[in-house]
Nucleic acid binder design. Structure first.
Length: 218
DNA sequence: AAAACGGGGGC
DNA sequence: GCCCCAGTTTT
């Protein structure tokens, strides 16, 4: 990597982030401390934009906010509430299944361990880590596509899959950065380092960026 | 009109 | 590893 070490980059981003709006982080922050809401929000957000997920989750949580009450909703009710998130039919079924499983096997409480969370259908490493960090405030590294893209763009690491990125970050990233790294990079990713046409001319770490796979810059 | 977008499951 | 999943947004 040229130019900045990771401490410098994080320090710079922390300064920059203060002046930006961050819709996704706001949605996520609203769920903070409620592992069940974090979990359900994550399911809804799979392969769908956050601007779509947010109102859908509001509609669903208006109907039920706990596994025992949510499992009583009909599939149609849930589908109607969460439309038009992607895969809304599958997700409605998954949500009911997860609620039933939580009530039957975990006394209605979302488990705190990654390995237990991964047993649920529809829960992968991103979701599991988000529940652990955001829901329970425990150490973890949540790698979504923002984190994956940005880490690879600016050259800190070179990985092919988000799971691999998480593994590398667990080895290389000082633990004091773990809890905040997702919020920080997602905010950066939405405001400047966007997937398409990022605002590289305004980016203070662009000098050490590989700009992978990006065709248009401003 | 066509490509890009975002996680996980199943094989 | 590779392909599929649905609906919205960007080019």
């Amino acid at each position: 990597m040229n130019g900045f070490d990771i401490h410098s980059v994080i320090a710079i981003l922390r300064q920059e982030v203060r002046q930006w709006q961050s819709p996704a982080v706001t949605i996520v922050s609203q769920r903070e401390g409620d592992p069940f809401k974090v979990l359900i929000s994550c399911i809804l957000s799979l392969r769908t934009q956050d601007t779509t997920t947010s109102p859908a989750s509001e509609r669903l949580f208006a109907l039920a906010t706990t596994p025992d009450t949510m499992m009583l909703l009909s599939k149609d009710e849930i589908e109607a509430a969460i439309y038009p998130v992607g895969f809304y039919r599958n997700k409605a079924g998954q949500i009911i299944d997860i609620c039933r499983q939580l009530v039957a096997d975990y006394d209605g409480k979302v488990p705190e361990e990654i390995d237990q969370l991964l047993m649920f259908k529809g829960v992968g490493r991103k979701t599991a880590n988000l529940v652990v960090t955001l829901g329970y405030g425990k150490p973890g590294i949540c790698v979504d596509t923002h984190v994956h893209r940005i880490c690879n763009r600016w050259g800190y690491i070179a990985t092919r899959t988000p799971d691999e990125t998480e593994k590398v970050l667990r080895q290389c990233l000082p633990s004091e950065y773990w809890l905040g790294i997702n919020d920080l990079l997602v905010t950066f990713g939405q405001n400047l380092c966007r997937p398409l046409s990022p605002y590289c001319s305004r980016c203070r770490i662009a000098v050490s960026c590989k700009k992978l796979g990006v065709s248009s810059f401003r």
